[in-house]
Design a protein around this nucleic acid. Structure first.
Lengths: 146, 146
DNA sequence: CCGTATCCAGTGGGATACTG
DNA sequence: CAGTATCCCACTGGATACGG
């Protein structure tokens, strides 16, 4: 994961470094929340369900390091920290929106495909068992026929 | 990772299920390669540097299960398998292209931001050490000054 | 050629407790 | 409020070997 491990990447396009950073569930979710304006730490934590402080902090640091998100500390009574998209980060909002939009639109189709795949795999497994002739792939989650 | 663990997600939008699948380095890379037309297994393996068979197979299975990629076995002498985007998968190509395109365009900016962040963190750490007054965040990779 | 099976090290990330 | 620190386990994904 070390960004300086360049010789590991000498044989492929360096955009993969950036892609790896973007290919992160939490980063995408944070970027998505930040589209709607600056957010405080706990606000993000509440918005993005089921994320722990540790992971949220880690991800925000990575995004800050990559110049996508800015971190502003307000020296108020109880310290207040605001996270916002940098200009660079804002150039990503359209793409992230496209991704989340696609997810919303096609969620049903994906779920249906999963069900079809699983039931097909299940039948194949059952058949292989009854005929007692192996050859069927176990698939991802065979939903054990018990 | 179980897709049926719905109660885990009852308090957030279910698109996250789809997003989690998409937020995968290898899946993105595969989708990107498949834009250019169907590919055989070993062709993909050669194209996508530094991916192991196991991981490539796993990722392809996930994509197949989600209905984004089709798997066609040709019963030739040495078995031949072709992977291609399904119609559903093709609706994602534009978004994936946008992502990789962004990565290419802004790679330099990201790298520059990383350097700036690291050197700033390094200076802060050094200063904190000399003044012997703690308070600086260790940052991600402080590039130990030692 | 296209996988699957097994082993195993590394790490992501959850739970929890503590600070400024 | 906004973190940091620690423990620790589950899972990722690499290497290797074998099978259809």
């Amino acid at each position: 994961m070390c960004a300086y491990d360049y010789d590991v990447y000498h044989d492929c396009c360096p955009t993969r470094l950036v892609l790896e950073r973007l290919a992160d569930k939490w980063a995408l979710l944070i970027l998505d929340r930040l589209k709607h304006g600056p957010q405080r730490f706990n606000s993000l934590k509440r918005d993005i369900k089921r994320v722990t402080q540790k992971v949220l902090t880690q991800t925000l640091r990575k995004l800050e390091r990559d110049g996508l998100v800015s971190r502003t500390v307000h020296a108020t009574a109880p310290v207040t920290v605001e996270y916002a998209l940098t200009p660079l980060g804002q150039t990503l909002t359209d793409t992230v929106s496209a991704l989340t939009h696609w997810a919303e639109l096609n969620m049903d189709a994906v779920l249906a495909a999963q069900n079809a795949y699983d039931s097909a795999a299940q039948q194949a497994a059952a058949q292989a068992a009854s005929v007692h002739r192996m050859g069927a792939r176990p698939a991802l989650s065979p939903a054990s026929p018990a």
